[in-house]
Amino acid sequence: MTADATTPARAASPLLGLLPPTRPTHVLDVGANPVDGDPPYRAMLEAGLCRVTGFEPQPEALAELLARKGPYETYLPDALGDGAAHTLFIAAASGMTSLFRPDPRRLGLFNGFEEWGRVVAEVPVVTRRLDDVDGVEPFDLLKIDVQGAELMVFQGGRRKLAEAVAVHTEVSFVPLYEGQPVFGDVDRELRGQGFVPHAFAAVKRWPIAPVVFGGDFRLARHQLLEADVVYVRDFGRPEEMTDGQLSRLALLAHHVYDSTDLAYHCLRQLTARGVARPGAANAYLAALG
């Protein structure tokens, strides 16, 4: 797949003229269930600038993804994890299905979650380590939301993650599942693999039951529950990144996360290496207005 020069994204993007992609950006979407709406890379996908390989073990969610997928999307039924046999706990709310058993005591602390996390079925499943999935080609962005099993996937994918430049992951501050790793566990693992936090893409706060503010049981004050955190390859150590990694980090920074400063930094590094033309970084900023 190539990004056609007439696509709206190419016409509108000041970066593509300065840093033409040598190949489409590859996104790996683990837990691709569309329950939360459009993924963060949607605009890039629609412009033909990336391709997606998704994993979704829930049959109904997988069927929906397959029914509406475009030409640059592939979806597989595998449950990624540590390669061991587990139980998949099917929850009343599809988005809460997990390899970890929902914890009723914790769920009861937050409005609505006691019902959403109610287990309606238990299905035996054999997980696969990401590093053991031969059909997955090198990817640039890992987007993952697997209700507590993120750490399991990261640990089972260290070899393939070494090629990636960004990870968009859900993290939990208050565990809703038994034995669920929390933010500190995930942060330690990703830092150990050479990533640093870049942005909070979303922060979910939730009211502590039974308090309801303004008649809306979802309206929160301060209690943190979960967040989507974007990690990027440590840009403070550019010497540890290839030209391709710097280029794809710049493209993701601009097209997915509106991170102008990170894209500029990558362009400067590429200019110093003779990959981008002199003045490319300043031309990029000037074109943004």
Rank of each mutant, 00 (worst) to 15 (best):
P34K: 11
T53N: 13
D228K: 08
E226R: 01
R42K: 00
A287N: 05
D38I: 02
P104D: 14
P71R: 15
R158K: 15
C50A: 12
G236T: 03
W206M: 02
G289V: 11
V203H: 04
R191F: 01
V229T: 04
G48D: 05
A85I: 02
D228C: 09
G95V: 12
D261G: 08
R273S: 08
E150T: 07
V196M: 05
H26L: 03
V119Q: 00
A84D: 03
L49S: 02
L66D: 10
V119G: 01
G70Y: 08
P24Y: 01
R191W: 01
H265D: 00
L252M: 07
T53C: 15
E137Y: 03
G184N: 09
A79Q: 12
E239F: 09
D243R: 02
R101L: 15
V211F: 12
A9K: 01
Q223S: 14
G215W: 13
A11N: 13
A3N: 03
R188W: 02
L267Q: 00
G194W: 02
R10I: 07
E170G: 07
R51Y: 04
K160T: 13
A91Q: 06
E240N: 14
N33P: 11
A32V: 02
A164W: 03
A85S: 13
Y177P: 01
Q147S: 05
E170N: 08
R129P: 12
L62Y: 10
L270C: 01
R128I: 06
Q245S: 06
A61P: 02
E150A: 06
P71H: 15
F139A: 09
E46P: 05
N33G: 13
E178Y: 04
F139W: 12
T22L: 13
A162Q: 08
P57L: 14
R205E: 04
P39L: 03
M96H: 12
V52E: 06
A283W: 00
R10T: 10
A280W: 10
D131N: 11
C266V: 05
V256C: 15
P181E: 00
E239W: 14
I208Y: 01
P238G: 05
A202V: 02
D36C: 03
P21D: 10
Y177R: 04
D82G: 00
A43E: 09
A47N: 01
V165A: 09
Q180C: 10
Y75F: 15
N33I: 07
D216E: 08
T74F: 14
R248K: 14
V119C: 00
G236C: 04
V230E: 06
F195P: 05
L80V: 00
F139M: 10
M152C: 11
D258Y: 12
A32Y: 00
W206G: 00
D234G: 14
V203C: 06
F89S: 06
T127W: 11
W206C: 00
P138Y: 13
R268K: 09
D185S: 12
T53A: 15
G17S: 11
H254Q: 13
P124T: 03
